[in-house]
């Protein structure tokens, strides 16, 4: 059973349709990418899932159960535009947010200590938020999102504003949470991160779902039979093939109907070209993204 299941969800604002009959499933223990250009309706969708707003139509199931007011306690949400109470101390703040999620005082305390220890910031308990740098605040924000051990975590652009070290730290935490059974929805328009982390994705544009599936399957389905050949000598003769890209010691060939990669390789071996590399070029998600959005 999927952790989250959307069925024909609609959200209408006064002058535009923010979410237009969107349906998809998020499987348990997966890292799921919710993609789309700015203003596509990602945040509207997330706000519906987190019960911040309600859908006008459609059905939302969390773990098979209709979305209701108890579910927010099982969801951890880190919005894109995030903030904390600047004057509050780190400890107080986390205690407050954890208790709002239904943890008892003792539970909250022990879980927060656990996370502070994990991030090696135990001495921050009494620091005011305004004393922390932006990256440090992000860490606190992340702890606030996961401290109540939600079944489903929704991260909206979690790496924006983070330096590479903290980005890696959060990435490895996300993976670890997944290993421990948590399902994660990861909303972004940064495609290289999606390729790296996500297993399944949906692509939304202008409120509509335009692409969904497993990342490697999608890439396979969008492949254009391109191969990059790298060689150590002069350029061999490619007159029988369609060359779509070229540089000093490499060429990209797009195979046509009936042509096979093995035949191309055989031909190159016959010409005696010293081959250093032979790779299939899969389209990047970025290319697929741009192609899909522009065609839409």
């Amino acid at each position: 059973m999927p952790i989250l299941s959307l069925n024909k969800v609609v959200k209408q604002y006064s002058n535009h349709l923010a979410v237009n009959h969107v349906s998809f499933n998020v499987e348990k223990q997966k890292i799921f990418g919710l993609l789309g250009p700015n203003g596509a309706g990602k945040t509207s969708l997330i706000r519906i899932i987190t019960t911040i707003t309600g859908a006008d139509e459609g059905e939302i199931l969390i773990d098979g159960e209709k979305l209701n007011s108890r579910h927010p306690q099982q969801i951890g949400y880190m919005p894109e535009e995030r903030g904390l109470y600047k004057k509050m101390k780190v400890g107080e703040q986390l205690m407050y947010l954890a208790q709002l999620k239904g943890l008892s005082k003792d539970e909250a305390k022990s879980k927060i200590s656990h996370w502070l220890k994990k991030f090696e910031i135990t001495d921050w308990w009494d620091k005011r938020i305004e004393e922390l740098s932006k990256g440090m605040q992000q860490k606190i924000q992340f702890i606030a999102t996961v401290v109540h051990e939600p079944k489903l975590i929704i991260l909206d652009e979690p790496f924006s504003g983070l330096d590479p070290i903290n980005t890696n730290l959060i990435k490895s935490e996300i993976r670890q949470l997944k290993e421990n059974g948590t399902s994660i929805i990861f909303s972004t328009h940064r495609m290289e991160q999606v390729e790296e982390i996500c297993e399944d994705i949906v692509l939304i544009n202008q409120g509509k779902l335009i692409l969904e599936g497993n990342v490697s399957e999608i890439k396979q389905s969008f492949k254009e039979n391109k191969y990059k050949i790298t060689f150590a000598s002069d350029r061999p003769d490619f007159s029988n093939y369609k060359v779509v890209g070229e540089s000093n010691n490499s060429a990209t060939i797009q195979l046509q109907e009936g042509e096979k990669a093995n035949d191309l390789l055989k031909y190159l071996v016959q010409t005696g070209t010293p081959i250093i590399g032979f790779n299939e070029i899969l389209p990047s998600l970025n290319e697929i993204f741009i192609q899909k959005v522009e065609n839409n």
């Binding site: 911040i52 949400y77 880190m78 919005p79 535009e81 995030r82 904390l84 709002l100």
Partner: peptide, 14 residues
Amino acid sequence: INRIVEVIISSVKP
């Protein structure tokens, strides 16, 4: 302005 409000209302009703 702080933007904390979205975190809070993902836990409690506005």
